[in-house]
Design a binder for these strands. Structure first.
Lengths: 117, 117
DNA sequence: CCGATATATTCGATTGACGGTATATGGCGT
DNA sequence: ACGCCATATACCGTCAATCGAATATATCGG
């Protein structure tokens, strides 16, 4: 598992993608509907950007029934993992990242529970 | 001094800009001709990208006679400085970053000395 | 098999980033 | 004032990223 630095930064340069990654840094695993709800964007929008992050190797996905759960690739190079942690500590107190975490925390019907979104 | 995370990543997503920033992380201060030589690109190309980094607030410049010296903005938020250091430790051993540092080290006529480029 | 749900992908249009070349600015020496 | 040098910017054509909307895929329950 390796990753080109400029590709890493391109991936994180889009706010939707960065918001997804920051949420996943705080939750291990989230499904698309949770990310969509937290960010407040259209489903194809989020899905498209998740696909980019997955193709780059930054995220991995796991299907469970209808839901697809994403998480940060656990095999990331150490410096990349450090960089993400670093970024999280820098941005988690400010918008829109803080709000995303709050919205997710208050989301009803999280999957595993009966109904999603 | 503050900086938007997605703008930071956009700035670093271009290889020319990342190479400049990584060189400046290792040298405190470099003039445009040194960066141009190390990277092996055309002068307007490097200058244009340095301007972007400056406008974003990532770099500051200082004129000394004909030369303009760039350095990392010392007033960067801590998490940004940490992130850059983090990135440096991740990429400094691999191309093209390692080679840039080597080429710069072997550059003749560095400014301050009689002639540049 | 059919409908419903969660997610992914395609399509077509637009916008913004980038590159090369040419030119402008600004400072130095004479 | 003139020429030279280091650097910056303007112009313009091209290509890649992005978007909204529509559609496709996959899984489950009945």
């Amino acid at each position: 598992m390796d990753i080109l630095a400029s590709n890493l930064f391109s991936a994180l340069s889009h706010e939707t993608r960065l918001r997804c990654v920051m949420l996943l840094m705080q939750h291990d695993e989230l499904c698309v509907c949770e990310l969509t709800h937290a960010i407040g964007a259209a489903q194809p929008h989020v899905s498209r950007h998740l696909a980019q992050l997955r193709k780059l190797g930054l995220l991995v996905d796991r299907r469970e029934g209808l839901w697809i759960h994403y998480r940060i690739n656990p095999a990331l190079p150490q410096w990349v993992a450090d960089l993400l942690q670093n970024t999280l500590s820098g941005v988690q107190v400010l918008p829109p990242f803080k709000d995303d975490a709050d919205v997710l925390g208050q989301m009803p019907n999280r999957p595993g529970a009966p109904r999603c979104a």
